[in-house]
Design a protein around this nucleic acid. Structure first.
Lengths: 340, 340
DNA sequence: TTGTACGCGTTATCAT
DNA sequence: ATGATAACGCGTACAA
């Protein structure tokens, strides 16, 4: 592989001049520039970004740590972030934790060694010691979608999950439901916790009493959620509606209801959370809580970039976006959200 | 950020010894090793992988270039590859081309600068000049899922797409269908081309005549496929079955059929290709052609690793895996594939 | 068992 | 406008 020296030799100039050409710096005679460029093209020279990184102390790479890339919510996030990052010459090193703290810890280690310029975490637990090294390293970092507890100075962009859950239950209540079950996410994730709180808050404000028998743990797992729904369905005081903590879980709830021979929404209404793309499919038509993922991703990346470039920016960045209710068929409403 | 020298100073040894400890090399007195390790921990030292890469000429990184991470087929692939790569200490730099040759070209440029140890492409076009620099660079490289035409020495792992398509049509034929439409992928992708050929081959072998009016271009796009299906449905000599070139397209076909007030499979049978996870959902139950993505991904990564490590390996690697027909509900068969 | 010294490819500084 | 040189952090050959 040719280096800057090979190009220099070939073009009959010094390495310094080649560097000037590569970096489009001034003070190079046009003819020299051309000559050098020609050698670069002929030799198929690619500047070594490792060497550049060593000098400049910047790698132009960002570590993106996701909970689960096969969840469309994260896949869509990844797509947006990769694209936006690329526009600013950042590469994305993608890590997938499966919500495993050990995995995350290992990835953080690797990313710290790779000297990424910044981190985006879409995977943290409420209490997450694996992030300590990142914080200690002072490498810019922002949380996405989930946040941590008791870490008041860390940056994040999240949704108002409590409000989202409240809106879901409110909608079901307005449709006449009085026994509304919850297939919830774990307390160890802020989303699971906050959506549960929103559910509670809604029950209280509508005068419904909390019944722990119809609040089951789905663990953000499809299998668990399916089982939870089966349990709800076969209980003797069956709920008339099920609110699931995310769309993937809601899909599993739908599976359970359908395979039990019941109808959605006539026998049981279902509402999800996230508005992943398949939710709008004709065969699914899931009523759900939407969030503007693109905006959330954009805010995360832009903030991170500013931190990296030490641009002025009010720290910590702590943005909470508003959710939206998207009404489709699974809730039984006669007034679906109009399409744009 | 502490460097190897800082650790050396703190532990009262030379940099060489620290290096020996980091790399678990022999010839270090146990006490010395401990002492050094202690300094490493205390100072939160992370070896600089840029510097290591410069010396060793290896970055332990692999460029994964995908057509579309939001397509579950690719997301599931990415997940597997990231996990397997991690086990062997490789990081994945993820690129998403949206099937745009220009994007791919740019990403290749970046990855070549980053000196990735290898490439996995799940995004190539049949004729794809953007790959020339990769080939010229001699950096190990393997294609996944799609291959190129007229490039006999390049490595790939693909499915027998022609056979897969043949099996789909054969199945529909056996169920009594005689007018089978195709919503196809573009000729510019080997998958689109090969699946089309399989369709043709099946028609011929069952004595059905090819009717170009029921072979429409879906371009691997959901919108296009929806429109194509609408067109098929409203044609006066309506097909009784539609075979779509991938599952995402099949889902759009389903949407079109459902929203036209027709029933699947009674009015129109539908078969897809890929067996993405949602295909098995109760509300969808898509009959489709399955491929063993995990195996395909594993072969790709293992082969690549061997090339990188210059282990003995029969080159070029050109693996063609066999597809499987997974029968669910959308084809109208009474005998769904048994579940494992 | 441990240390010294050089080079990996680049950029920034200083000189010419 | 161009060139020489040092430095970034690490691994390794060689010396001790």
């Amino acid at each position: 592989m040719p280096t800057i020296k090979d190009i220099a030799k070939r073009a009959g100039v010094s390495g310094a001049t080649v560097s000037r050409v590569i970096n489009n710096l001034p003070n190079v005679k046009p003819e020299t520039r051309e000559k050098v460029q020609k050698s670069i093209d002929e030799m198929q020279y690619y500047p070594n970004s490792l060497a550049r990184g060593m000098r400049s102390k910047k790698t132009n790479s960002i570590g993106l740590v996701l909970a689960d890339i096969t969840n469309p919510f994260y896949a869509e996030t990844a797509k947006t972030i990769i694209e936006l990052a690329g526009r600013h010459d950042y590469s994305i090193i993608l890590c997938n934790t499966n919500n495993d703290l050990n995995e995350q810890h290992k990835y953080i280690d690797v990313l710290l060694q790779r000297k990424v310029d910044g981190f985006i975490f879409a995977s943290v637990h409420c209490k997450d010691p694996s992030l300590d090294p990142v914080i200690a390293s002072k490498v810019p970092c922002i949380l996405y979608n989930r946040r941590m507890l008791q870490n008041d100075h860390i940056n994040y962009v999240v949704l108002d999950n409590e409000l989202g859950a409240y809106m879901a239950v409110e909608h079901l209540y307005n449709l006449g439901h009085r026994r509304i079950a919850l297939v919830r996410g774990p307390n160890t994730f802020s989303t699971g916790r906050e959506r549960f709180n929103g559910y509670l808050k809604a029950l209280k404000s509508f005068g419904l009493k909390y019944d722990e028998k119809i609040v089951l743990q789905g663990k953000y797992s499809e299998k668990q959620s399916y089982d939870a729904a089966i349990k709800l369905i076969s209980s003797k005081d069956r709920p008339t509606a099920i609110f699931a903590s995310n769309d993937l879980m809601a899909l599993s709830v739908l599976e359970a209801v359908i395979s039990s021979g019941l109808r959605v929404p006539e026998d049981i209404a279902v509402v999800g959370f996230d508005d992943i793309e398949i939710a709008s499919h004709s065969a699914i038509q899931l009523t759900t809580i939407s969030q503007n993922r693109n905006m959330m991703a954009e805010i995360a990346l832009d903030s991170l970039r500013k931190m990296i470039n030490k641009e002025s920016l009010q720290l910590p960045v702590q943005v909470v976006l508003k959710p939206m209710l998207t009404v489709r068929k699974t809730c039984g409403s006669k007034n679906p959200t109009s399409r744009n």
